[in-house]
Design a protein around this nucleic acid. Structure first.
Lengths: 353, 353
DNA sequence: TAATTTAATGCAAACGTTTGCAATAATCCA
DNA sequence: TGGATTATTGCAAACGTTTGCATTAAATTA
């Protein structure tokens, strides 16, 4: 109700006839403050409802105990899961997290990087826009030795810590699986190649085809932002003319789900006529009919590694020298109905890496 | 690379032989600084890579240009969507958002409220835990006139701005719809009554039954945290003994989806044997087979209203006096296959409020 | 040209902490 | 009991801004 209620450390000092420095140390459990004083200080602190001003402390200490996170969007399964993990994990270390969404816009990403720097975050975690190829907006962080960790959608040729999934292997495993289930003509729907993630998966896809003596034709790969609308259009292209493919490897699950819906509408049987594998193991793959095989990326593990690396950087255990270092998180193919069928190998689960 | 690079306003002042106050005003486009000076200042600011220190400014101004948001979890459709809207909308006003998750834990919610206060956020937006019935941890905000807005899961009897969906009507509309489709024995699976949201929906459910001359029996309402596991168990209870219900109104979509899965496994036909309506219009309701009727809550509208109210409070246009004020966002039933069937009324869409 | 108004800039305090160093109080040992 | 050591506490500066007020420079007027 009252207008001027902000209690500060000096209010405590006055009430107890102590100096502010003593109060400050008492609150921070500094070793050479007597137990009695600490107790008294903490008691009145509680009594008058004192709350530390993190801005003041941050200014003085030159650290905010805050980490910034930039992701394309939190409405997508994978970044959402990772964000949650990161936030909860970070909490254990006494840091809190500013989650920001770039909405896959390069301009927004730049703006966010700047405001997060202004907020003097103690570290920055980023999964970039689909279209980020210039990383100069992160230079301020590098130049000032502020820990910088990228995950999932990571830069190429930018000296920085990187944690990513095993996308090459993911593409390889998914494609091999389809081949082993009998597919001879496999379409791949990929994201834009500006994002290294997708180029790795494409490479894996091509390698698997080659290894099994199947041709990889240019017109069997589609590059597009992996939205529902684009997926539908691409389906119309794919099934607009013969021959139909007998397998589709989609680089995300939204696309895979849309393919299922398209096939249902067009009376194409999945998996009998065409087999489908998606990517990310979004929980939605389990509730559609037929359920969709998908490549799991272990988001929990990735989130935990992000925090671990970040903490090492902050605590100076790792060289703060901005040097490229890449950590690969394994993947695992989860087989479901959408790719069921006669198997050459008879293996039930294809786990790798 | 260099160790000490943090450029400040005094670096600019020195370079231009100006006072820091002039530089500060120049950067903030203060009216009585000459255009020439502003230009010169901004030029070297850019040249030396100056970035304002938001901590220092915040300390001095007693405002951080930052808003706090506490939601149960961002992996759920509804809070995720609203968080996105709020963040993007807030950006337009020059505020940034600290998104925090309570994980539906009361203790975490308390801790988060405290750290956000310490961070001196200029406003706080909250959707509470399922179990929050004591709101004392928000008192600091109220007492210091820091704008406080609750949405969706809101407190009862706590003087504060509240924006919520029309849950009573939602319960009423969903139930009425099932009745009109011919259901005579409708089970309701509700969340815990500690959350006013659910009690409102239950009230709507009961009112609809009564209005159509149907009895509302105690043992046809289940109260539980609306998880997948609980939903499955409850299904086993419901269909563990005769008579089976012919309609189920579930208070969230995860539950509705699980019911569908259960029915499929048990060879119960939806909607022929039992009709189902969920809540929130999660996009997943559209991809399962059969697709699920659900109550849409207009998350975008709610998010926008939250920001609008918050901005009014911050700009002092609304009375900062912490007085209860409730705003109701309409709902709309989206009919899908899970509740299809003969309709008494023949109406195609039941839109209300 | 001098007096007056207006425009532009500078001084210094303040925001709430933390911390190196100095100072005081308490304890120990001979 | 006095001198030395150790345990507590206090002083004051610093972190990077912003802003009320004072000051100076420029423009206007008589």
């Amino acid at each position: 109700m009252s207008k001027r209620t902000e209690k500060t450390i000096v209010d405590i000092a006055e009430e107890l006839q102590l100096s502010v420095s003593t109060v400050s140390r008492a609150l921070n459990d500094h070793p050479n403050i007597s137990a009695r004083t600490k107790e008294r200080v903490k008691k009145v602190a509680k009594k008058i409802g004192y709350r530390p001003n993190a801005l003041a402390a941050g200014l003085r200490n030159n650290k905010s105990k805050t980490i910034g996170l930039i992701v394309p969007r939190i409405s997508m399964f994978f970044p959402a899961t990772i964000s949650t993990i990161i936030q909860n994990k970070l909490q254990e270390f006494g840091y809190n997290l500013i989650i920001c969404q770039s909405n896959d816009s390069y301009e927004q990403e730049v703006a966010l990087a700047n405001t997060l720097y202004s907020a003097r975050v103690d570290g920055l975690v980023v999964s970039t826009t689909l279209y980020t190829t210039d990383f100069a907006h992160f230079d301020i962080f590098r130049n000032n030795n502020i820990p910088l960790v990228f995950f999932d959608r990571v830069p190429k040729d930018y000296n920085v810590k990187v944690i990513k999934g095993d996308d090459y292997r993911g593409g390889y495993v998914a494609t091999t699986h389809l081949v082993e289930k009998g597919c001879k003509d496999i379409v791949h729907i990929s994201g834009p190649l500006t994002c290294c993630l997708y180029s790795d998966r494409v490479a894996g896809y091509k390698a698997a085809l080659q290894e099994h003596g199947l041709p990889s034709k240019k017109n069997r790969i589609f590059y597009q932002e992996l939205t529902r609308e684009n997926a539908w259009q691409t389906c119309e292209k794919i099934f607009g003319q013969q021959p139909y493919p007998d397998g589709i490897f989609a680089s995300n699950d939204t696309t895979a789900i849309t393919i299922i819906e398209y096939c249902r509408k067009m009376h194409l049987r999945v998996p009998e006529d065409v087999k489908i594998v998606g990517y990310s193991n979004d929980p939605r793959t389990e509730i559609v009919t037929p359920s969709i095989s998908s490549v799991d990326q272990y988001p929990a593990m990735m989130g935990e590694r992000v925090v671990a690396v970040l903490m090492e950087l902050i605590n100076g255990r790792q060289s703060a020298e901005p040097r490229y270092s890449q950590e690969i998180i394994p993947i695992q193919l989860i087989e479901r109905q959408s790719s069921a069928g006669k198997s050459k190998t008879g293996k039930k689960k294809l786990t790798l890496s």
